[in-house]
Design a protein around this nucleic acid. Structure first.
Lengths: 196, 196
DNA sequence: CTAGTTTTTTAGTACTCACTAAAAAACAAC
DNA sequence: GTTGTTTTTTAGTGAGTACTAAAAAACTAG
C-alpha cells in the first residue's frame, strides 16, 4: 500500500471555505473559481478529485453545516420538554442567522429556493432537508401531545408547521438585515402561541 | 412624427412571461434565452430595445408583480382595522403563494436571497422592497397603537416584525410544497399573538 | 534504486452568459 | 415616390460556466 502525493490543503478547512461561499452566494451564485479561492485549492482538478462535482460538494457542505453552525438544532431536541426544545431551536436560529463569523441567514434557505433547471437537484436537496427538520419537530410535538405536555385539543402538526414557518422566516429576516435582538423579540412573540 | 416598424409582441404579455420565469427560477437562475422564450420575443436585441438590460427588466417585473399577483397587499391596507389588515395580508399571502396559475412562493423572496457579486443589485432591490413592506405594516400598527386599537404596552414595531417574519416564512413554506389549507392554518395560529 | 499510488499541474473541452454593432425591414408623414 | 423612425434580424463580442484528459510531481513500500 502506498502513500501518494500529499494534499496541499486541509479537507475540513476547505469544506468550511466552501460552506462560507455557498452560504453567502447560494448554490447557483457560486462558481468553481469562487470555491477554489475560498477552499485554498489551486486548480479545478484537485477539487473534483477530492470532493466530486459541484453538487456532491454541496451535499458534503450541507452535512458539515448540520454538524457545525446548525449543531444547535440537535441540541435543542435534547431538551426535556417540547416547549424548551422549540424555544431553544428558535432562539438558536436567531443567534445562528446573525452570527458575525458567518453569512447571514441559513444555508438551507439561502442556498436556493428558486433556480434554473440545471440546479434543481441541489434545490430539491435543500427542500428535503428543510422537510426533514419540520418532520423531526412534528414528531417531537406529537410526542408532547401524547405525554400530556400539550393540552387536549392541541394540534401538534399545525404547531410544527407554524414554528417551522417562524424558523424559516427568521432566515429571510436575517438576510434583510434584522438584528439579533430583533429576532429574539420575534421568537418571544412567536412562543406566546404555545397552548395554555 | 413617424410610426416606425411595429412590435411583434405585446409588452404586458411579455412582462407577464418574464415575471413567471423570474418567479420560478429566481433572478440569477434566469437566462436571457429563458426570458426570450417566455416573453414571446424572437431575438435578444428586441428585448434590450424594449426593456433595457436584465436588471432593468427585473425591476419592471417587480413593479408589475406589485400591481398584479401582489395586489392583495394594497387591498389589505384598506381594511378599517389594523387587525383586519394583518389578517387579510397573511391569508392573502397563503393564497397567493399557492396559487395554481403561478409559481410557488413570493417573487421578492424566491427572486434571490443569496447571489453572486454580479447580481447584488437585484438582490438589494428585493431586500429594499421587502423592507418597504415591513415599514408600511409598521406604520399601520403604530397608527393602531395611537388610535387605541392596540392595548397599552403593545409594541407595534415588534408586532410588525413578527408578522413580516410569518409572511416571509410562508413564502419558504410554499416553496417546500405546503398546501394552501396548511398555510391558512399557520396564519390562524399566528394571529393568536394579537394583543388582548 | 524501482514500482505503485495519489495529487497537482497544464491545457484544454464544449457550452452558456449578458450584451451589441450594423444592416435590413416595416411602418407614418409628406 | 422619399425621408424619418422604430423594430427585427443577423452575426457576432469577450468572458464565464462546469468539467476533464494527460502528464508531471511527490510521496510510500520494498
Amino acid at each position: 500500500m502506498a502513500g501518494g502525493r500529499p494534499r496541499t490543503f486541509d479537507s475540513d478547512a476547505a469544506l468550511d471555505g466552501a460552506m462560507e461561499v455557498f452560504w453567502r452566494q447560494g448554490y447557483e451564485g457560486t462558481g468553481i473559481s469562487d470555491l477554489l479561492k475560498a477552499m485554498g485549492i489551486s486548480n479545478a482538478p484537485s477539487l473534483y478529485n477530492a470532493f466530486g462535482n459541484k453538487e456532491q460538494l454541496f451535499r458534503k457542505v450541507l452535512d458539515r453545516y448540520a454538524e457545525g453552525p446548525a449543531g444547535y438544532i440537535r441540541e435543542a431536541f435534547l431538551e426535556p420538554t417540547a416547549r424548551a426544545a422549540v424555544s431553544t431551536l428558535l432562539h438558536g436560529a436567531a443567534d445562528a442567522t446573525t452570527h458575525p463569523d458567518h453569512p447571514r441567514g441559513c444555508i438551507t434557505v439561502q442556498g436556493g429556493l428558486a433556480c434554473s433547471p440545471g440546479a434543481e437537484a441541489a434545490r430539491d436537496e435543500l427542500t428535503m432537508r428543510r422537510a426533514a427538520g419540520e418532520a423531526a419537530l412534528r414528531e417531537r410535538l406529537r410526542q408532547a401531545g401524547q405525554s400530556g405536555e400539550l393540552p387536549a385539543g392541541s394540534d401538534p402538526e399545525a404547531l410544527a408547521r407554524y414554528f417551522t414557518t417562524i424558523y424559516q422566516g427568521i432566515a429571510v429576516q436575517a438576510a434583510g438585515g434584522a438584528t439579533r435582538e430583533q429576532l429574539h423579540q420575534v421568537v418571544d412573540l412567536a412562543m406566546t402561541v404555545w397552548p395554555q
